[in-house]
Simulated assay, not measured.
Amino acid sequence: MASEGSARHPAGRTALVIKVPEAEPLVGEWRRRFDPAAATGVPAHVSVLYPFLDHARIDGPVIEALRESLGAHAPFELSFRRCGRFPAMLHLVPEPDGPLRALTRGVVDRWPEAQPYGGRYADAAPHLTVAYSPDPGVFDTIETALTAGLPFTTRVTAVQLVSWDGAQWHDAETFPLRG
């Protein structure tokens, strides 16, 4: 999920995310310091789709379609073995990324108006955001600290719909992966 600051998120924005609680001991303090989303209720996660539909558009049929689409996928494991960098962002790289891309593709196929990150990137590579900074030296320090705690693994069993109320992100619905 983008962490660009609350002023850039209109109330009613939603996202589909996979929470990664196993990452919190490793990245929690760094995220609190360098990822504004951490202060708005966003735990360590990998986005499936950000932004999704406006909250006002999410009704019973949309929930059922999400339940069907996401539920068709089997649970899977992700490993985090290394850090990666995008311009001004340090992240952990989830592997394999194929199951994550398949989840995203399934939702986008059903709602083509909901492109990952609004269609800003040719390849919206799955990632777990750790920090934002214009200073690569900050990333060098954080990456050195993170490397000592890698690798770790998580089992993905659900996708969470979260909604922005203008000040905080809140859990709205959970979609189990059933396969």
Rank of each mutant, 00 (worst) to 15 (best):
H91P: 01
G84H: 04
G166Q: 09
V27C: 01
T153K: 14
P126M: 09
F52G: 00
A39F: 11
D97Q: 14
E77P: 07
A158H: 11
A37R: 00
I142D: 00
E68W: 15
M89K: 07
A37H: 01
V138A: 04
A114W: 06
D109N: 14
P61N: 10
T174K: 11
T157H: 13
V42S: 02
S69A: 15
A23I: 05
A11H: 11
S3L: 06
M89Q: 13
G106R: 14
S3I: 07
G12D: 07
A102C: 12
R8D: 12
V62H: 04
F175C: 02
P75H: 13
I58N: 04
H45L: 07
D135M: 08
G84F: 09
P176Q: 10
V162L: 03
E113A: 14
R82W: 14
R101F: 11
L103H: 00
R105K: 14
A56E: 14
W30D: 02
V108N: 02
V130E: 00
W164T: 02
R155G: 06
H73R: 06
V138S: 03
P21C: 08
D59W: 12
S79F: 11
V42Y: 01
P36G: 03
T104P: 03
H9M: 12
G71F: 11
T40S: 09
P136S: 05
E143G: 03
A2G: 13
D140W: 11
P87I: 12
P116I: 05
G119P: 07
L53A: 06
H127A: 02
D140T: 14
G137K: 03
P116A: 06
G5L: 08
F152Q: 02
A44G: 06
A15N: 03
A65F: 14
D123S: 10
V17Q: 01
A167K: 12
P87R: 12
L146H: 00
R57S: 15
A44M: 08
A124Y: 04
P176M: 06
Y117N: 09
E143P: 02
G179S: 08
Q168I: 13
G149L: 08
P96L: 12
P134Q: 14
P112T: 12
S6N: 09
D165W: 06
E22F: 10
E22D: 11
P116T: 09
H127T: 03
Q115S: 13
R110D: 07
R120W: 15
G28I: 05
L53Q: 04
P94M: 05
E24K: 05
G166Y: 11
G12Y: 08
P61M: 10
A145G: 12
